[in-house]
């Protein structure tokens, strides 16, 4: 369960989020649309605890784990994809080699590839960003512009992944400035000038 209650956030005197409220349950797929700079990433950063809200509150279920892809994901640039994923998952001792290998294969990334992440293309980094957001069996998954840089085949795989996450009773919130065909959202919202409204 995720409950966002009257969250506001300003940077200096510039209001980015104004009294944003949203409630969602596990097993739901949500979409938040909005132009660049509309506050989508800020909202995700507040949900994950990376940023503190000026006012309002965010609460999740006691045992829920949040996974997120926010903006351009940064990695340990001179390490391999597998080393990065293992490092991140092991921060909370949740590395599952079989799951990570399955996800990498699904997204056409070679788990044995010894190339450093620094040499990855934008699309490959994006796939890695999506994988790290779901590889630890996270319950609430926040994906900010997840299809940026992905080719059509990868977008198809992404849709398959999201549908399987939903079937596994995970909550997924996709924030993007456009719609991805093939996804049936349970809730659709639009964030405009810091105000969140039903679409």
């Amino acid at each position: 369960m995720l409950a966002i209650n009257q969250v506001s956030k300003s940077f200096k005197d510039n209001p980015v989020l104004e009294r944003v409220s949203l409630t969602a349950e596990l097993g739901q797929l949500l979409h938040i649309s909005g132009d660049n700079g509309s506050g989508k990433s800020t909202l995700f950063k507040i949900i994950t605890g990376l940023l503190a809200a000026d006012s309002g509150s965010v609460s999740i279920g006691d045992n829920d784990i949040i996974g997120a892809l926010i903006e351009n994901p940064g990695f340990l640039e001179y390490e391999t994809a597998m080393t990065n994923l293992k490092f991140l998952a092991n921060l909370n001792k949740r590395f599952d080699a079989a799951r990570v290998t399955e996800l990498m294969t699904q997204f056409d990334l070679n788990p044995q590839n010894r190339q450093s992440v620094a040499k990855y293309s934008v699309g490959m980094r994006q796939k890695l960003g999506i994988i790290q957001a779901v590889m630890e069996n996270q319950d609430i998954i926040l994906l900010d512009e997840p299809t940026r840089g992905l080719d059509e085949e990868s977008i198809s795989q992404f849709i398959v992944l999201l549908n399987s996450l939903k079937a596994a009773n995970k909550m997924v919130i996709v924030a993007s400035h456009d719609h991805v065909d093939g996804l049936n959202y349970d809730q659709s919202w639009v964030l405009k000038a810091g105000i969140l409204e039903h679409e």
């Binding site: 949040i66 997120a68 926010i70 990695f75 921060l91 909370n92």
Partner: peptide
């Protein structure tokens, strides 16, 4: 080197 991954570390 680790700072580059600080957002993904912070989420955890």
């Amino acid at each position: 080197r680790y700072r580059a991954a600080s957002v993904l570390i912070g989420i955890r």
